[in-house]
């Protein structure tokens, strides 16, 4: 998200300068002072809360800390990082997180596009439709997780009942009982909740496409797939890139839905890297390693965001 929006900001930075009079150094300094005072409350509220924990955690990641009360905490340098990077369970959870992230983001984009397209269509009860679509997004994650846990329940679940009644499956299945299936089911629950958000972002992009562009394309007798490819998609690139980065960051940090639905099981099949970091730090009380893990997560998120943006910029649909 950050990079994307900074980009947009950067672009429009020209805006004030263009329309206003050329700012002299004195005026600029005055503005600087005002900006400082205007930003001070936000700065206090955000960094006042996080700056100390950030550094504290960074420092802890270089020490061996086995207890929240430990007084004997030897300095171990990068050993914690080495330990994490050398552990099989870390890479497994990383793999699962990547799978979760890519699959859920891809599905959310695909469904989001469809829903956005439908929402943009000139239907009579559009407001009602939009209100309905917003529902899953408004339901709290924990409630959402509990609800899907119920739907997937092996004994009472609606999914089992539905599929059996339709004759698709003969026996009730434990949907959360197999590691791979369980992960897919968690993805499904996440997609259900988040697609509306994605759809609204994309819809915002869609509504900003000028009608003339469609007209022009139609005059050229372009078919829908072509219009979509050459008109709609390029115009949507900014929204898509924002959504991609936003969702990737979120999906990579996913914790609450896992905690509420599966607690990482079965066979660690749904243990994502953030959940892994949580258990390492709090259940195993390995705070040094846990802190190192969370910094690795930050680095990966940064790297992923950068890669996305670069890919999008390189592709021919470069509007950034």
């Amino acid at each position: 998200m950050s990079v994307a929006s900074v980009k947009t900001v950067e672009k429009s930075e020209m805006h004030p300068a263009q329309s206003g009079k050329p700012a002299g150094p004195r005026k600029r300094e005055k503005q600087g002072r005002l900006a400082f005072w205007l930003l001070l409350p936000a700065g206090l509220a955000v960094f006042g809360v996080i700056i100390y924990p950030i550094f504290r955690t960074l420092i802890i990641s270089f020490f061996q800390v086995n207890s929240a009360l430990a007084t004997d905490t030897p300095f171990v340098g990068v050993d914690n990082y080495v330990h994490v990077l050398g552990s099989a369970s870390f890479w497994e959870s990383m793999g699962r997180t990547l799978y979760f992230t890519l699959l859920s983001t891809a599905l959310e984009l695909a469904f989001g596009l469809i829903v956005a397209g439908l929402l943009n269509a000139k239907l009579r009860a559009r407001w009602l439709f939009r209100a309905v679509v917003v529902i899953p997004w408004a339901i709290p994650t924990i409630v959402n997780a509990a609800m899907w846990k119920g739907i997937f329940s092996a004994q009472y679940g609606a999914l089992n009942a539905l599929l059996t009644q339709l004759g698709i499956i003969k026996e009730y299945q434990a949907w959360l009982g197999d590691p791979t299936t369980a992960l897919n089911m968690v993805v499904l629950a996440d997609v259900w909740k988040t697609t509306p958000l994605v759809a609204f972002f994309l819809l915002a992009g869609l509504t900003s496409i000028p009608a003339e562009l469609y007209e022009a394309a139609k005059l050229d007798r372009a078919r829908w797939p072509r219009i979509f490819r050459s008109v709609v998609l390029p115009m949507l690139v900014p929204s898509i890139s924002i959504v991609l980065v936003l969702r990737t960051v979120e999906a990579f940090k996913v914790f609450d839905i896992i905690y509420a639905m599966t607690r990482g099981g079965p066979v660690n099949g749904t243990q994502t890297v953030a959940y892994y970091a949580y258990t390492t730090a709090f259940s195993d009380q390995n705070f040094g390693v846990g802190s190192a893990l969370s910094y690795i997560i930050v680095v990966v998120i940064l790297a992923l965001s950068a890669i996305y943006l670069r890919l999008l910029r390189r592709s021919e649909m470069s509007l950034l």
């Binding site: 924990p53 953030a274 910094y295 998120i301 965001s305």
Partner: peptide, 18 residues
């Protein structure tokens, strides 16, 4: 602005104990 937005990338676990 960048710094403000970058805070979003921090996983909450990283801040819990402090």
């Amino acid at each position: 602005l960048m710094i403000f937005l970058a805070t979003y990338m921090l996983p909450q676990i990283a801040l819990l104990i402090p």
